[in-house]
Design a protein around this nucleic acid. Structure first.
Length: 110
DNA sequence: ACTGTGACGGGGC
DNA sequence: CGCCCCGCCACAG
């Protein structure tokens, strides 16, 4: 688990999309190493879009202010929240995909 | 080497 | 949805 691997994965997350720690770990080549993602993520600090990494189910795992900021950053990118979590079905980024899906333009998103 | 800890994830009740 | 348990890997004491 190296920072380069993490950056490579985290940086792949496009704006307006999010990925779970587990997904990032897998994408980085370390399936099951979600906890290590946290470790590397901290080491990397703001050198990457850390706010696009959330917990399973689209839940913000960052406590206090940091969590508040992450939520704000995501919202600023167009990521909607369903209560305290993000509707992953719609905002989860698929690393296997070469390009983000051209999300259909729903006239009644809700 | 052993134990405790963490921005985690999945399963069972 | 809350609670508990286990698996996972790397770091800190």
């Amino acid at each position: 688990m190296t920072l380069e691997q993490l950056r490579a994965a985290v940086r792949r997350i496009p704006r307006g999309k999010v990925a779970t720690y587990g997904d990032v770990a897998k994408a980085a080549g370390f399936p099951g190493a979600a906890r290590q993602v946290v470790w590397a993520l901290q080491k990397a600090g703001a050198t990457l879009p850390w706010h696009r990494v959330v917990g399973a189910g689209g839940r913000i795992r960052l406590p206090g202010e940091a969590g508040f900021e992450q939520r704000a950053r995501l919202a600023s990118e167009g990521v909607k929240f369903q209560g305290e979590k993000i509707p992953m079905k719609q905002f989860a980024f698929d690393f296997r995909r070469r390009k983000a899906s051209p999300a259909k333009a729903s006239r009644t998103p809700g």
